[in-house]
Simulated assay, not measured.
Amino acid sequence: MEIVVITGMSGAGKSQAMKVMEDMGYYCMDNLPPQLLSKFAELTYKSTKHIEKACVVVDIRGGEFFKSLYEELEKLSDMQIDYKIVFLDASDEVLIKRFKELRRPHPLNANGSIIDGIKEEREILNDIKSKADYIIDTSKLNLGMLKAEMTNIFIKGEKREKITILISSFGFKNGILLDADMVFDVRFIPNPYYIPELKEHSGKEKIVRDYVFKWPQTNTFLLKTLDLIEFLIPHYIDEGKSQLVIGIGCTGGKHRSVAIAEELANELSKKGHSTMLFHRDFQ
Rank of each mutant, 00 (worst) to 15 (best):
E239A: 09
D137F: 00
K204S: 08
L178W: 14
V186N: 11
N219M: 09
P234R: 08
G203F: 02
V258F: 02
F221K: 04
D181A: 04
T225G: 02
K214T: 15
T164H: 03
I248R: 05
Q243A: 10
S139W: 07
T220S: 14
S168N: 08
S202F: 13
I237F: 03
S257I: 08
S269L: 09
R187D: 03
E263G: 01
I153V: 11
F213E: 04
C250F: 09
G249E: 08
K156N: 12
I165K: 01
E262M: 14
S242K: 09
L222E: 00
A265Q: 09
W215S: 06
E161C: 12
K241L: 01
V245G: 09
I189Y: 01
L268I: 02
E197K: 09
P234G: 14
S202C: 07
P196R: 12
T151R: 15
A259Q: 12
T164G: 10
L264I: 13
N174S: 12
K162E: 09
F172H: 07
F213R: 02
R187N: 04
T138P: 04
K254C: 10
A148D: 15
T251S: 08
D137E: 02
L222T: 11
T151K: 15
L268H: 08
G203D: 01
K147E: 15
Y211P: 00
K206R: 14
E262T: 13
K270E: 05
N266Y: 10
V258Y: 04
W215H: 15
T251P: 08
G253A: 01
D210C: 10
S139Y: 15
E230M: 11
Y194L: 05
K241V: 11
G157R: 03
M150R: 14
L268K: 08
S257N: 15
N219I: 14
T251A: 12
Y236N: 08
E262F: 12
S242Y: 05
T225F: 03
G247M: 12
I260S: 01
I246P: 06
I207T: 13
L228Y: 09
F221H: 07
D179Y: 15
G240D: 05
I155N: 11
N142V: 12
I260H: 03
R256N: 02
S168Q: 13
I248S: 07
V212Y: 04
V258D: 09
E158S: 11
N266G: 13
L177P: 02
K159T: 08
E158H: 11
I246R: 03
I189G: 06
I233P: 00
C250W: 09
G247R: 03
N174G: 06
